[in-house]
Amino acid sequence: MSKGDRAKSAREKIKAQQAADRVRERRRKAVTYATVSVVAVAAVGLGAWYAASTSQAEQVGGSLPPTTVNPDGSVTMAQSGVTKPVIDIFEDFQCPACKQMEEVSGSTFRNLAAEGKAKVVYHPITIFSTDPTKSNSLRAGAAARCLTDGRQWVGFHDLLYKNQPSETAEGFTTDQMVAWAKQAGATGAGIDTCITGQKNVQAQLDYSAKVMKEQKLSGTPTVKLNGTALDNKVVFAPKDLRDAVTKAAK
């Protein structure tokens, strides 16, 4: 083989080697990108799973814990002797976010009380200042004050949220609420006239103003654990909510 032929052969080998190197590099990058994509998808999937697991509403377990309607209109749910940790729930029956909270975390509040792991106190207030939301809220809040039996109050509370009217329409009519009170088992003398006569409107207004001032509330729902407001990310995540209460009990 001549010197020229040897040089040509060497150049061809170099080109072939370079071509092979380029193929290997493309393959390496493809594998790297695929691995990164799989990890990213896995991370997204894990995040979605965690979000779903923490936002899953608990099943209500056992019977309703002892529930007492207090003279000021608040309602305490707790096993005998349980004084802490204290969960204060500030809610407005016309508030859509309060309805969502009840749907997602309402069973967790009740389960914690039933398990003797917390003292739960409901504070139904009126935060709205314009109609129809203000009037709707006042009618509902005043009507709830007519029920003095704890179990009946809880049933009525649930029906108010289940039948919550739009924020742009008049709702919570007295006739509707009389029917819901009976559905909740409140058939005692004077319940109907208490609701239709709206005798507790001023008490609802006074209590709302007092609570909002003392608690420095800017809106509902607001949930406080031992006096400290919980982040709504925790309030709307039953698993995180339970963990926070369990930690506070230690």
Rank of each mutant, 00 (worst) to 15 (best):
Tyr207Gly: 03
Lys210Met: 15
Ala203Asn: 14
Val245Glu: 10
Val120Trp: 01
Gly45Ser: 15
Phe128Lys: 03
Lys117Gly: 10
Thr67Ala: 13
Lys250Gln: 04
Ala184Pro: 01
Val104Arg: 14
Arg28Ala: 14
Ser80Trp: 11
Val121Met: 09
Gly81Asn: 09
Gly73Pro: 02
Val60Cys: 11
Pro96Ala: 05
Lys15Ala: 06
Thr228Val: 13
Val60Leu: 14
Ala57Ser: 08
Val223Trp: 10
Asn70Tyr: 09
Val235Trp: 00
Ala248Ile: 13
Lys29Tyr: 11
Asn136Gly: 07
Lys84Thr: 10
Thr76Cys: 08
Lys233Phe: 12
Ser137Thr: 02
Pro85Cys: 15
Asn111Thr: 14
Val211Phe: 02
Ala118Arg: 06
Gly73Asn: 12
Thr222Arg: 01
Leu159Arg: 07
Met212Cys: 15
Ala169Leu: 11
Phe236Leu: 14
Ser63Trp: 01
Ser9Ala: 05
Met177Thr: 06
Lys117Ser: 05
Lys99Phe: 05
Ser137Glu: 01
Lys99Tyr: 12
Ser208Ile: 04
Thr67Phe: 03
Phe156Ala: 01
Pro66Ile: 03
Thr148His: 13
Thr222Gly: 05
Glu58Asp: 14
Ala118Lys: 05
Pro165Gln: 07
Val69Asn: 03
Ser218Arg: 13
Met212Gly: 12
Gln198Asn: 06
Thr83Tyr: 03
Leu205Gln: 15
Glu170Val: 01
Thr67Gly: 03
Gln215Asn: 13
Asp240Gly: 11
Lys213Asp: 13
Thr68Trp: 04
Val120Asp: 00
Cys95Glu: 01
Gln183Glu: 06
Arg139Ser: 05
Pro238Arg: 02
Ser166Ala: 14
Gly185Cys: 05
Ile87Asp: 01
Thr220Met: 11
Ala140His: 04
Lys119Leu: 05
Val44Ser: 08
Pro71Lys: 07
Glu115Gly: 09
Gln100Ser: 06
Ala42Trp: 11
Tyr207Phe: 11
Gln176Met: 09
Val38Asn: 09
Val201Met: 02
Ile87Cys: 09
Asn136Ile: 10
Thr173Ser: 14
Gly150Leu: 14
Thr228Ser: 05
Pro238Gln: 02
Glu170Ala: 02
Lys15Glu: 11
Gln204Asn: 07
Phe156Pro: 00
Ile89Asp: 11
Ala144Ile: 08
Met77Thr: 15
Pro85Lys: 02
Thr35Phe: 10
Cys95Arg: 00
Lys210Phe: 11
Arg110Asn: 04
Arg22Tyr: 09
Ala113Pro: 01
Leu225Phe: 08
Val235Glu: 01
Gly47Val: 03
Pro66Phe: 13
Val121Thr: 08
Arg11Leu: 12
Gly150Cys: 15
Ala140Thr: 07
Gln215Cys: 07
Thr68Met: 07
Val211Ser: 04
Arg110Glu: 05
Gln100Phe: 12
Lys84Pro: 13
Asp175Glu: 13
Ala144Phe: 00
Ser135Met: 06
Ile125His: 00
Ile125Leu: 03
Ala203Asp: 09
Asp206Glu: 09
Lys117Tyr: 08
Gly73Glu: 13
Val82Cys: 13
Ala237Ile: 06
Ser9Lys: 13
Lys210Asn: 12
Glu91Arg: 03
Glu102Pro: 08
Cys194Asn: 03
Leu147Asn: 01
Gln202Ala: 14
Lys213Trp: 11
Gly61Trp: 10
Lys162Val: 09
Ala19Thr: 15
Trp49Ile: 15
Leu241Gly: 00
His123Gly: 04
Lys210Val: 10
Gly45Glu: 07
Glu25Ser: 12
Gly4Asn: 06
Asn136Leu: 04
